Computed example of a mutant assay.
Amino acid sequence: MHRSIRKSESGINSNISGHPYCVSVLKEGYCTAEPDGSFRADGTISLITGPQNILVDTGGPWDRDFLVEKLKEKGMTPESVAIVVGTHGHSDHVGNLGLFPHAKIIVGCDISVGDRYLPNQLAEGQPHPIDDFVSIIPTPGHMGRDVSVLVKGTSEGTVLVAGDLFERCHDEDSWKELSENPQIQETNRQKALQIADVIIPGHGPLFRVHKQS
């Protein structure tokens, strides 16, 4: 059976309730071109709260005070975060890892606690489960070892915090200019659209995935 897929930004709150995990967008990422040919960019920062508190992407180093304040608004401190995921190694996504020295750190396919690096199979294309509801899945393309975070059981269904797998909802072909491997990234984008009900992209508002038979 063939299913058509369309995407829509409408009708989703940036705080998604769920059981046992809720997902909140602390900062919506952006990317805007400048007249001199440069561009301004910052990555989306997302917080998953539940049995374990998980921060996905930390923004750039310029976001340090902003991030601490946003956590405070949630009744949290950096020490409250058990796991920090950097979807990939660009500075606008991992610029504040230093706030979380005691958390488990997952950046791309590296998983570490302090200076101890843990075995995993992300680089071989296998997901890394956190528990029955949250897993880290490999989604390379933008860079060689990008990952995304899949959260099941929310009020909006399955949420994928996708880093720069998607720049934004309607990124058309613009994402290809920043991709190390557009063919692999396109394959992973299509897989993401099949498994997720909501996608949180790296540089724009979250969006809904509509699947129709």
Rank of each mutant, 00 (worst) to 15 (best):
G18P: 06
P20H: 03
Y21M: 06
V23K: 00
S24W: 00
V25M: 06
L26A: 02
K27W: 03
K27H: 06
G29M: 13
C31M: 13
T32P: 00
T32L: 10
A33N: 09
A33H: 04
E34R: 15
F39I: 04
R40Y: 01
A41I: 14
D42V: 11
G43K: 04
G43D: 07
G43A: 13
T44E: 07
I45S: 08
I45C: 07
I45N: 10
S46K: 03
L47P: 01
L47C: 02
I48H: 00
G50I: 15
N53M: 08
I54S: 02
L55W: 05
T58M: 11
T58C: 14
T58Y: 07
G59F: 08
G60E: 10
P61F: 02
P61N: 01
W62G: 04
W62Q: 11
D63I: 07
D63T: 10
R64G: 03
D65H: 05
F66G: 01
V68S: 05
V68Y: 01
E69T: 12
E69A: 12
K70A: 15
K70Y: 02
K70M: 15
L71G: 00
L71P: 00
L71Q: 00
E73A: 08
E73C: 10
K74L: 10
M76K: 09
T77R: 13
T77V: 12
P78E: 12
P78H: 08
E79H: 08
V81L: 09
V81Q: 02
A82N: 12
A82Y: 01
A82F: 03
T87G: 07
H88R: 14
H88E: 15
H88A: 14
G89M: 15
S91K: 15
D92L: 09
H93S: 01
V94P: 05
N96W: 10
P101N: 09
H102M: 09
A103G: 03
K104H: 04
K104Q: 14
K104N: 10
I105H: 04
I106K: 08
C109Q: 00
D110W: 01
D110P: 00
D110E: 12
D110Y: 04
I111M: 12
S112L: 11
D115F: 04
Y117F: 12
Q121I: 04
L122G: 03
A123G: 05
E124N: 06
G125V: 09
G125C: 05
G125P: 03
Q126P: 00
